[in-house]
C-alpha cells in the first residue's frame, strides 16, 4: 500500500543544507490505522507532506499503491492527491461563505470527470459523519466538531485509498475530538487506511500502530496492544456534557 524507502528531505543547498528527514523507511498495509508521533521540529509535518504527495522527497523512494511518487510531475501529483488521498487538517480548511454540501463536493471539481451523482455522494458522505441535517449550513454556523466532520466528509468524497489527518483533534474539545476519532475507527473497520499525525499520546493510542519520529528518523515503530475505543470513551463521558 504505502512503502517508504530511505526517504530523505533536505531544505536549502550546499553548506546551508538542512536535512529534515534522514532516511525514513516503513510500510503501511491497506486497512491499517497508524499514528505518527513526535515533538515539534522532528519532521512530522514534512513527512506528512510527502505522504500526502504535497511535496516530493529529495532522496529515497515512495510508492503509493503501484505509483512511484518521486517520478511524478506537478500535474500528476495533483491528480494523485485528488484520487488517492483524503486530507483532514487541524484548522479544518473549509471554504467560508460556502455551504457544507458545496464544501464536501469541492474535490470532485478537480476529478478527472465530474460525476453525475456528485450531490448524492456529498449528501451520503455528510450523513455518514452524522451531519445529514446540516448540509445547507455554512462553516460559520457550525461548531468546531461539526466543521471537522464536514472536512472528513470532504476527504471521503473521492473514495480515497488513504485518509491523512494532521492533528485532527488539535482544535477540538474532548467530546468533539472523540467523535472524530470514533469516525476514524469506523472508517478503518470499513477497510480504509488511516494515518494520523499527532503529538498527543492519547490520540495516538486510538490507532493500531505508533511511529515515533525523533530528529528526522524513526525512533521506534510499535503496534498498540490494546487501542483505545473512542465509542466507549464517549459513552462514559458525563451525561450533562453531551450535546
Amino acid at each position: 500500500m504505502i512503502e517508504l524507502e530511505a526517504v530523505e528531505k533536505a531544505y536549502g543547498s550546499g553548506s546551508t543544507e538542512a536535512l529534515v528527514l534522514k532516511g525514513i523507511s516503513f510500510r503501511v498495509e491497506a486497512g491499517e490505522y497508524v499514528a505518527i508521533m513526535g515533538a515539534s521540529g522532528t519532521g512530522k509535518t514534512t513527512l506528512l507532506n510527502i505522504l500526502g504527495c504535497l511535496d516530493k522527497p529529495t532522496g529515497g523512494h515512495y510508492r503509493l499503491e503501484d505509483t512511484d511518487v518521486v517520478s511524478l510531475d506537478d500535474d500528476a501529483l495533483s491528480h494523485l492527491r485528488n484520487r488517492k488521498i483524503g486530507f483532514v487538517f487541524q484548522m479544518f480548511h473549509l471554504l467560508e461563505r460556502t455551504k457544507a454540501l458545496k464544501n464536501v463536493m469541492l474535490p470532485l471539481i478537480y476529478a478527472e470527470e465530474y460525476p453525475d451523482d456528485a450531490e448524492e455522494r456529498a449528501k451520503k458522505a455528510l450523513t455518514s459523519v452524522g451531519l445529514a441535517d446540516r448540509i445547507q449550513y455554512k462553516p460559520g454556523e457550525l461548531s468546531g466538531g461539526q466543521q471537522q466532520r464536514v472536512a472528513i466528509a470532504r476527504a471521503l468524497i473521492t473514495d480515497p485509498a488513504i485518509v491523512l489527518a494532521d492533528e485532527p483533534t488539535g482544535n477540538l474539545d474532548r467530546r468533539s475530538g472523540l467523535e472524530v476519532l470514533a469516525i476514524f475507527r469506523r472508517l478503518q473497520q470499513e477497510g480504509r487506511t488511516i494515518i494520523v499525525v499527532t503529538h498527543d499520546q492519547a490520540v495516538a493510542e486510538h490507532a493500531g500502530r505508533i511511529l515515533l519520529l525523533s530528529d528526522g528518523a524513526i525512533a521506534h515503530d510499535r503496534p498498540v496492544a490494546e487501542p483505545r475505543d473512542a465509542e466507549a470513551e464517549l459513552a462514559s463521558l458525563p451525561k450533562e456534557d453531551r450535546r
Binding site: G52, L54, D74, D75, S78, H79, R81, N82, R83, F87, H93, L106, P107, I109, Y110, A111, R154, T158
Partner: peptide, 8 residues
Amino acid sequence: RRALGATQ
C-alpha cells in the same frame, strides 16, 4: 484547492 487535487 491544490491539496484537494487542483492542478496549476
